[in-house]
């Protein structure tokens, strides 16, 4: 029986990183195609808690490697343990979520296994060990199908493409193992600082919430929504001209040009000067009372309604969805 081995990830605070569950469902999809068993490995100072949490998610086995040198994540310390386990299990596939740990660690594991690797996999196709990995190139402008010719195949998965694995089915067997001590580890952990998300800069933010004339100068709801999303606040020219908000919030021809992943235009009609400043955004949401407002022509999702009613509702729904 061939094996798909998924690597679980522990957060600095000790909890299981949720992306692991997305990776597990990717692993399940791959295991079905290739007719393999799904195993998961967790490395931690004490791996038992996370191992227990994972065993009910439709896996055949959870390999729990506990050792003092797993207290802080370091690629050099983790890679040998995973590679050794993969070899012992004769795993054909070794994968992980494409988190910053996954990106850092898996190529090092692959290098140890002399295995080729595909990053940010979105889909698996094929059967047995003849699997085609679908992955993005050129920042997602190209979707490529790739094949790996090495006996062991390593990958990371784009978590947004796979739903989190649900609990269910027969619980997997938790197998504690003691990984061999790594050789000299030449990198040492110094510290980890959590970055508190103060409101980001307009031009660098992943999400921007902008208000227009429809706010009548009341930006409280705009700001509250921005805080929930960790978003920057922007504004249309009309509200800047009216003196309701400072100049440096203006998005548009004479203001800032932004291209966030998500742009939410609230009470903005969508004059061409404003569109010039935000049309490069990946996803655009428009909320406006006027169903004929030009902003709806560029919006991916439009919602017709009174912003003072819609925004509190939206804020709560997003909190709940997170």
């Amino acid at each position: 029986m061939s094996i798909v081995l998924i690597v679980a990830e522990q957060q600095p605070d000790g909890a299981l990183r949720k992306a692991t569950l997305n990776a597990l469902s990717a692993g399940k999809a791959l295991a079905e195609k290739s007719g393999a068993e799904l195993h998961v490995v967790v490395l931690a100072k004490d791996a038992s808690a996370i191992a227990n949490e994972l065993k009910d998610h439709g896996v055949k086995a959870v390999h729990a490697g506990s050792a003092p040198h797993f207290e802080h994540y370091i690629a050099e310390a983790f890679a040998p343990a995973i590679a050794e386990l993969a070899q012992n299990l004769h795993a054909d596939f070794v994968g992980m979520a494409s988190t910053s740990v996954g990106k850092d660690l898996m190529p090092r594991v692959a290098a140890k296994l002399k295995a080729a690797m595909a990053s940010d996999v979105m889909k698996f196709e094929g059967s047995g060990t003849d699997i085609t990995f679908t992955r993005p190139m050129w920042a997602g402008n190209v979707i490529a199908e790739v094949k790996l010719a090495t006996p062991v195949k390593v990958f990371t998965v784009r978590t947004t493409e796979f739903p989190p694995a649900q609990k269910g089915g027969a619980p997997g067997e938790v197998k504690a193992f003691t990984p061999a001590a790594p050789g000299e580890v030449k990198t040492k952990f110094v510290d980890f600082k959590e970055v508190k998300s103060a409101r980001p800069q307009l031009t660098e933010a992943r999400v921007v919430v902008s208000g227009g004339r429809g706010t009548k100068g009341d930006f409280k709801e705009i700001e509250a929504l921005a805080d929930v999303l960790g978003a920057a606040v922007g504004a249309s020219r009309a509200v800047v001209d009216a003196g309701w908000v400072p100049n440096d919030l203006q998005v548009g021809q004479t203001g800032k040009v932004v291209a966030p992943e998500l742009y939410i235009a609230v009470g903005i009609s969508g004059a061409i000067q404003h569109l010039a400043g935000m049309k490069g955004s990946k996803t655009i949401v428009a909320i406006n009372k006027d169903p004929e407002a030009p902003i709806f022509q560029v919006a991916d999702y439009g919602l017709v309604g009174d912003l003072f009613k819609v925004l509190p509702e939206l804020r709560d729904a997003i909190k709940a969805a997170k």
Partner: peptide, 28 residues
């Protein structure tokens, strides 16, 4: 000799035309 080969490239699915959603729940 490459161990990884790209067998096919394609364009990502075209951006869907914008839609109007009826309520906040659908939007989220």
């Amino acid at each position: 000799t490459p161990k990884l080969t790209v067998t096919k490239m394609s364009a990502p699915p075209a951006r869907k035309a914008g839609i109007k959603v009826p309520d906040v729940a659908t939007l989220v």
